[in-house]
Design a protein around this nucleic acid. Structure first.
Lengths: 342, 342
DNA sequence: CCCGGATAGGGAACCGGTTCCACACCACAA
DNA sequence: TTGTGGTGTGGAACCGGTTCCCTATCCGGG
């Protein structure tokens, strides 16, 4: 294990000069630089990031806290963030924090404690006041996805607006009997996506003068979750709606699978719209609002790195960037079979 | 930012004593220990892992290289490894290395270079000889999932045997016309899973005295991939097999969805078996061989940590642990509608 | 009573870099 | 000729811990 002192000795210069030559900071003559670089290569020298960050305070590493790894949105965000960070020379240390994790405190107390990371990105975790304080005390840039978090730059889509748009799409097709199948806001406290999408649904319904009682079915946020709800809700022909707004594409696909099994034609008998832009949406011909998680991940990284270069003042840091969603119209939605007044 | 010197001063002891008191190493009287702990708490002292690892050589951090984050098997492995590592006080830094990544070299040259990690886990990445050497030169424990890797302890299932078992299940049900839909070994070089499963399939067929020509359909390793292959293969009634062994559950489910759309009854007209134990398998009533990725992840972590405590000799380190798979018999497989000789 | 070993704690070196500061040199302007 | 400022380099301090080594006390056994 060779150290920079070995490089310096071999090159016939002082440690300080070797350091400057290799890092590119400070004055070094071209001739000396080349000697040092050659010496470093000769003995296979690689700088110890630990030693460097001990004095510079920079670790070139960022911490990510996230409630799920294996769910679509989160894994996409993760993949895009890792890629963006790597390209900038940062690496990513991952903390998976489900809502009720026994390790949760230790992550905040120990792992995110001190000098480990140049910055932290929080993806869709609902942080307690104490946890937010804890992160702020690190004095490091902090960026959120799915916010807002107090005093933190956040990237998000407008869940209320997206849900409203999805609902309005169904309304504009002439549907009278619309229900929403979405997350149960009690469990899985990943922010307010669940309640926001429900809010958007109710708002659109109310604006259209529709009653909303009995129009919401809580559901696990997965394809099997949607499937189970679909079987039970569509099972009884009398209670069957003509259109469903699902809070996620996976739920929507579960609903479609259930409908098909029950012999219900989509979209003729039942329109289904989701939110996400899941890669499976196309094969189920699902109309959906795409939310581009990779774009969110990349923007989060860019925001964090920008703030690293030029720290913001306390008051400018509380900023929410809303990314657009876009409607992809496939054939899981259509006007109802018997339009009103026909 | 308080340092251990501040703690020592406040407690009225030397740095060395404070260090011993807080780390629990060496002799410290109970009384002194309490004083130091109290002082540390009073000023909110948290040790700098950087400084510690600079001298101990331990970073309490392990690196993971993985070709996908968002695919089921890999995200499950990741989630289980993160959990196991966190419980042992380690954190996990993630490098996503698709087969042809422009960053690939930089990960090996720079990020995995020196003193960053106490160990490395490689999940399903096919490493070049040079890369394996590179990792070995780190002189740190290295564990693989999906191996084998030269000179590395590896956790894996027996893909050949699993494929054989799946195929034999179909054979034992009396199917005459069996095909395999699996990964294209040319692309996505994540090891030999693709070719191993194909090998197992061919072996079982051969042992049963079956012809195998034209029995393999290459397929993207995803649900839409299976769906597309299903539409094209099942589309023509004359070429339609009575049973399919899919190399993954996602492919299998894609096939089932395609079959349903084409009006083909599963399992009456078509039996489908997969490999994985995917959470969606149940809702599609898919018969499958479960491979328990979380168990693989946990075992990889346990193996790595064991090796960290007691480094192995060069020759004992080349060990492959084969984890069992188990058949879960659901209703996507049954005897063919017209058994031979009926 | 003396000695060896366990317990307790202080001083200082050390891990491997970066950076501050001092100094030397040189060119060019005043 | 004497500043003045840009270059180039070395020495040494420093980041924040851990650990080696040394000294001191106490206790039990020979």
């Amino acid at each position: 294990m060779s150290a920079i002192a070995d490089v310096a000795r071999l090159a016939g210069v002082a440690k300080a000069t070797a350091s400057r030559a290799l890092s590119g900071r400070g004055y070094v003559s071209e001739e000396t630089r080349q000697k040092v670089v050659a010496a470093a290569r000769a003995i296979g020298y690689v700088a110890s990031p630990n030693a460097a960050s001990l004095v510079t305070g920079r670790t070139k590493s960022i911490g990510v806290i996230i409630p799920f790894i294996s769910r679509w949105f989160f894994s996409e965000v993760l993949e895009s963030m890792e890629e963006a960070l790597l390209a900038e020379g940062y690496d990513m240390t991952l903390y998976n924090l489900p809502a009720a994790s026994p390790e949760r405190d230790s992550v905040f107390d120990y792992f995110l404690a001190r000098k480990r990371f140049d910055g932290v990105i929080s993806v869709g975790v609902a942080l307690s006041e104490g946890e937010v304080d804890h992160l702020h005390r690190l004095g490091r840039p902090l960026v959120g996805i799915g916010g807002p978090i107090r005093g933190v730059q956040t990237i998000a889509i407008d869940d209320v607006a997206a849900a409203r748009l999805a609902t309005e799409h169904l309304l504009s097709l002439g549907h009278q009997d619309i229900v929403h199948v979405g997350g149960n806001q009690a469990d899985e406290m990943d922010f307010k996506v669940h309640s926001n999408r429900l809010t958007g649904f109710y708002a659109a319904m109310r604006d259209a003068g529709r009653a909303t009682s009995g129009c919401f079915y809580p559901c696990e946020f997965t394809m099997p979750g949607g499937y189970r709800v679909g079987l039970s809700v569509f099972g009884d022909p009398r209670s069957r709606p003509t259109a469903v707004f699902a809070a996620s594409d996976e739920i929507a696909i579960g609903l479609i699978v259930a409908a098909r099994e029950l012999g219900i034609q989509v979209p003729a008998d039942l329109s289904v719209i989701g939110i996400d832009g899941h890669p499976y949406a196309d094969m189920f011909r699902l109309t959906t609002l795409e939310q581009h998680p990779r774009r969110q991940g990349r923007l989060a990284v860019a925001t964090l790195l920008t703030e690293l270069d030029a720290p913001l003042h306390r008051d400018e840091s509380d900023h929410l960037t809303v990314l657009p969603t876009n409607l992809v119209f496939r054939s899981s939605t259509s006007p109802p079979r018997n339009p009103p007044g026909a």
